[in-house]
Simulated scan of single mutants.
Amino acid sequence: MGTVTCVACGTERPRDEAREYDKHGDRWDREDKTFEYLCKSCHRELCHHPRTELEALLVELDADTQSQEAFLARYLAAVEERYGTLEEHER
């Protein structure tokens, strides 16, 4: 069965104690694909809302061409501009 490493917290777990994660959002198409894994506790903490526009936004923001800090600042600004703040949605 083997072990896998959680991409969120870095712990190693037996494969049957983890959840598959597909960063492209299509875990059903398995052809030529390598999955990442999340331990069950990290998986439970995730937001499970649809991420229809997420991949396009990441490409638009050039997610992999800047530091993590710079990207997160641009991402937060773009999300708030498009969808409003979290506080606005909680009202």
Score class of each variant (00 low, 15 high):
His89Thr: 07
Phe35Ser: 05
Ala18Val: 06
Ala73His: 11
Leu72Gly: 02
Gly10Ala: 03
Glu45His: 09
Gly25Trp: 06
Pro50Ile: 09
Tyr21Ser: 09
Phe71Arg: 13
Tyr21Lys: 09
Ser67Met: 01
Ala70Met: 01
Ser67Thr: 15
Asp62Gln: 15
Leu86Ser: 13
Ala8Met: 04
Glu12Gln: 11
Leu86Trp: 04
Gly84Thr: 10
Ala73Leu: 05
Leu72Glu: 06
Glu45Cys: 05
Leu57Tyr: 06
Ala63Trp: 13
Arg82Ile: 12
Asp16Val: 04
Lys40Gln: 13
His48Gly: 04
Leu58Asp: 07
Glu80Thr: 07
Val7Lys: 03
Pro14Gly: 02
Lys40Leu: 09
Glu31Ser: 12
Leu57Gly: 00
Arg74Phe: 01
Leu76Cys: 03
Lys33Cys: 02
Asp22Pro: 04
Cys6Arg: 00
Cys42Asp: 05
Arg30Ser: 10
Ala77Gln: 10
Leu57Asp: 09
Val79Asp: 00
Arg27Asn: 11
Glu60Cys: 06
Gly2Ala: 08
Asp16Gln: 11
Leu72Ile: 01
Arg13Thr: 08
His49Gln: 13
Trp28Phe: 10
Glu88Ala: 15
Arg44Lys: 11
Asp29Lys: 15
Ala77His: 10
Glu90Phe: 01
Gly10Glu: 12
Ala73Lys: 15
Ser41Gly: 08
Asp26Arg: 15
Ala56Phe: 09
Glu88Gly: 10
Ala8Trp: 02
Gly84Glu: 04
Asp29Ala: 04
Ser41Cys: 08
Thr65Ala: 12
Glu69Lys: 14
Ala18Arg: 03
Leu76Ser: 09
Gln66Ala: 14
Arg30Tyr: 02
Gln68Tyr: 05
Val7Gln: 01
Leu46Lys: 13
Ser41Val: 11
His43Cys: 08
His43Ile: 03
Gln68Pro: 12
Lys33His: 13
Glu31Trp: 08
Thr85Asp: 05
Glu17Ala: 02
Gly2Ile: 01
Trp28His: 12
His24Trp: 12
Ser41Phe: 00
Trp28Ala: 10
Leu61Ala: 03
Tyr75Asn: 04
Asp62Thr: 05
Arg91Gly: 15
Glu87Trp: 04
Ala63Gln: 12
Thr34Phe: 06
Leu72Ser: 05
Tyr21Pro: 00
Val59Cys: 05
Cys6Trp: 00
Glu69Asp: 13
Glu81Leu: 11
Val7His: 01
Leu38Trp: 08
Leu57Asn: 00
Ser41Thr: 14
Gly10Arg: 00
Arg44Thr: 14
Pro50Val: 11
Glu36Ala: 14
Met1Ile: 05
Leu76Lys: 15
Ala56Met: 08
Glu36Ser: 14
Ala56Asp: 15
Glu88Met: 10
Glu12Met: 02
Tyr21His: 15
Val59Ala: 14
Ala63Thr: 08
Phe35Trp: 12
Val4His: 01
Thr34Asp: 06
Glu12Arg: 03
Ala70Pro: 01
Arg15Trp: 07
Leu76Gln: 14
Pro14Asn: 10
Glu88Pro: 00
Arg19His: 11
Tyr37Cys: 03
Asp26Trp: 07
Arg30Ile: 10
Gln66Phe: 01
Asp22Cys: 14
Phe71Ala: 07
Thr3His: 12
Arg51Pro: 00
Thr85Ile: 06
Phe35Tyr: 15
Glu87His: 08
Leu46Asn: 04
Ala18Asn: 03
